[in-house]
Amino acid sequence: MTIATVTAGNSWINKVPEATLLFWIIKMMSTTVGETGADYLAADLHFGLAGTALVTGLLLAGALLCQLRASRYVPPLYWICVVLISIFGTLVTDMLSDLAGVPLALSTAAFSLAMLATFWAWHAREKTLSIAAIDRPRRELFYWTVILFTFALGTAAGDWVAEGLNLGYANSALLFGGLIGLVALARYGFKLNATACFWIAYVLTRPFGASCGDLLSQPGSSGGLGFGTIATSALFLAVIASLVAYLSFTQKRLTAQRT
């Protein structure tokens, strides 16, 4: 975790965490919660896709408003936003495919283009895509917009591979896990650009986490292990809460040592 220094001429410090091992563990689990949580709210609680999207959209808007108004990285607030945007991004794709009949391949292509267009606009205005420089309001707005597209894209791509191509949840998890491993090799073995590797891995963790969530929660008849959405969501949320609490404690201790 990074406690960034204050940017010259700006009262903000970096608003997002460093991409450590804990970051990737929480990120992967949040994607799983996004998949199982959306299924639980929409199907088990009978909110429906539109109702669940409305509720989580309002919660997300409130959380993001608090996040944008904060002057520094606050672990609980940041990860609440990630979990909510994971659920909402999942629902955006599900509504397009289930309610509007948009093919998953088309959704994958559309969200890819939207994400790339946001990257282009971000770099054109700010001259950087680094997560170590989310220290201005406009950069943070670009950051969260890209995050939303990564979750929607990851959902579409994951569902397309697991269901549309009949690969299955376990094989999908192995596929996307292997791709994440290749990205890590490219970064640490061949020293490829850190920012590019980060964002590629960020996209891939969405279908990887979703495949793991479906593998754990779906019944055996559908290719899953049958633990259910409630148990899977509760387990991963408990682990996320514990890790975020640890990050908050560590941040406070480091801040106290520096003062």
Rank of each mutant, 00 (worst) to 15 (best):
G209E: 11
N193R: 10
W120Y: 10
L165H: 09
A121T: 08
G168A: 05
Y188Q: 14
F198P: 05
G154V: 09
L113E: 03
S107H: 01
G189Y: 12
L116Q: 06
S130M: 11
R139C: 04
F111K: 00
A194R: 15
L204P: 04
F119D: 03
G158A: 10
W122L: 02
C212E: 10
F198H: 10
S221Q: 06
A194M: 03
L148K: 01
L96N: 02
F176P: 06
L129T: 08
F198K: 06
L179W: 11
E126H: 13
D159I: 05
W199L: 12
L96A: 10
A162W: 03
L182A: 15
T128S: 15
V146H: 01
W144L: 07
A133I: 05
L106A: 11
A194F: 09
A194Y: 07
W160T: 01
N171D: 09
L99Q: 13
L129S: 03
R136S: 14
A100W: 10
S97R: 05
Y169E: 04
A210G: 14
F208W: 14
G178E: 02
G224M: 02
L204G: 03
R206Q: 12
L148C: 07
A156S: 15
V183N: 06
P207Q: 05
V183S: 11
F190V: 15
P137F: 06
I180P: 02
F142Q: 12
D159C: 00
W160Q: 05
W120Q: 05
A162V: 09
A194H: 13
W120A: 10
